[in-house]
Amino acid sequence: MAFKGAIVVDTEKCKGCGVCVVNCPTQTIALAKKVNSKGYPYAYMENPDKCTGCGNCAIVCPDTVITVYKIKI
């Protein structure tokens, strides 16, 4: 069985620490070139097709700005 996932990042609250980026097993996430109103480059799905919805990014996120969605395919 395979899973397909997606994340939603609260970009205004993201501080761009990058901990989610290194902990994403499928290299889905990257830090944006753009910054939020506080000047932080926020996390986003650079490769949305790769997301499996494993939730690792959300688990390690210190600011709880990532919510994770997942479906069976």
């Binding site: 688990i59 919510t67 997942k70």
Partner: peptide
């Protein structure tokens, strides 16, 4: 299609 309340896992 994925980001729907029923698919929320975290």
């Amino acid at each position: 299609e994925i980001i729907k309340p029923e698919n929320l896992v975290y």
